[in-house]
Nucleic acid binder design. Structure first.
Lengths: 243, 243
DNA sequence: ATCAATTTTGCGGTTTCCCGCAACATCACC
DNA sequence: GGTGATGTTGCGGGAAACCGCAAAATTGAT
């Protein structure tokens, strides 16, 4: 006697999820589906749900944003995230918004059907948090700060990634210009920006600022989506401030 | 009496492709499958293929790279690309390497089963090129240079995206420092980098260099993968030069 | 309350980037 | 050969960014 919500834009994956839910022992009697974040939020209000399975990258509204909206009204709703990538951007986003009362899971799409079924069981029935092994690796790197970025460093990384100047960052974060540069120095250090073994014996080959963006992108600290979202945040901040 | 090769890392999509090939009127008697680019190249050598269906983003080797390798040996092999995104980076990559003797297609994964089947028919049986409507839009933007980037501009965009300094670019491209900056100016202009309506009445908020990367990323001119590949290119060039 | 560790900030100087202006070079087309 | 469009280069100056050093300020723990 339970209703589940599937949020996923790819039709194929949607039917796959439907099938696995049906096969699993979840006492499922009804499945509702959304293909983007906005719809997901609406449906979560309209139905009494037992749980949500949600893709992370979707048009219009990210899975993270949709989850925040849902949790804002139903802070105990179990949500299983189901994503293609283990990008740090997503992991960071989720761990920052998950309320203590909610159970959630984070699974990669490469997982087998059996594993997906078991994870649903854990999250929706037994109320246990499940996190994919690979993702766990990302999470732990965050805590020991040997090579994980602190919050401040990640923040400044996003700021330069959306193209802000040092001044703009200083303004936004309410710190001095020099502090911004200090944080940037830390960031460069953590990303391993020693001046690259100069290829032709010439001078420096890399521009620290852009180079750090490139490194962050290729090491999946950030991605296109996280830049888009960071830019939205910035616009919101900038908009509120003037009017 | 024909063999087809499926190249796709996602198991779900793989079975989907298998199914559609089976249903279509392709005279298909055998299907071989690869889950990454390297395997695809090997299998293309080992079998006598009638055609290839290939995803673009895969581990190890991009679909574009695999296609180039296959076409290098069998320049008439029909290949149907089957991708999630219409990113310009992919379109550019493909149109640059497709030999005149080959037929190919480019379809988005959002296409229906029927459309996929018809496209296979066109490419593999009738030898017609098929290109998704949305992708065609991207292609045409390239030709009329009103807002499409020229080759030189795209090149310099990738160069700064991997973090090179102006000097390094000048060295690499064999042009003067000033020319690099000239090209950058053109790039900035085309990306619409007018100094943004200063938010708080203060000075410039955007760093042109990083801002153009952000714009290119969000407008899908480039993506993480294209940066990785550009970096490989650069390393190759730099490596050859010094030894 | 005190002391250590971290972070923020100012100062000063070097390097790099950004760009307007103008002189060539190149190429194509008439 | 002329002419215009496009692309390259030098010059020069102003603005950012980068960074070492050391003094404040903040934070945390004992």
């Amino acid at each position: 006697m339970s209703t589940y919500l599937i949020v996923e834009d790819d039709a194929l994956h949607r039917t796959f999820l439907r099938e696995v839910i049906g096969l699993s022992d979840l006492d499922c009697t009804e499945i509702v589906e959304a293909t983007d974040g906005d719809e997901a939020v609406r449906l979560a209000q309209a139905h009494t749900l037992r749980g949500v399975v949600m893709d992370l990258q979707m048009p219009r509204k990210t899975g993270v944003q949709a989850a925040r909206a849902i949790w804002a009204e139903q802070p105990t709703m179990p949500i299983l995230f189901w994503s293609n990538y283990a990008d740090e951007a997503y992991v960071r986003g989720i761990t920052k918004i998950v309320p203590p009362s909610a159970t959630y899971g984070y699974l990669l799409k490469t997982s087998s059907k059996e594993r997906l079924g078991r994870s649903m069981q854990c999250v929706f029935v037994e109320g246990q948090n499940i996190i994919d092994r690979e993702i766990r690796g990302v999470q732990q790197r965050n805590n020991n700060r040997s090579d994980g970025l602190s919050e401040a460093e990640y923040e400044v990384l996003l700021d330069i990634a959306i193209g802000l100047t040092d001044q703009a960052i200083a303004l936004r974060r309410n710190i001095s210009l020099r502090s911004v540069q200090g944080r940037l120095q830390q960031l460069y250090a953590k990303l391993g920006l020693v001046d690259a073994p100069t290829v032709n014996g010439h001078t420096a080959l890399y521009n620290s600022r852009t180079r750090s963006i490139a490194l962050a992108l290729t090491s999946r600290l950030i991605n296109g989506k996280s830049i888009e979202m960071a830019e939205q945040d910035y616009r919101r901040w900038a908009g509120d401030d003037q009017t």
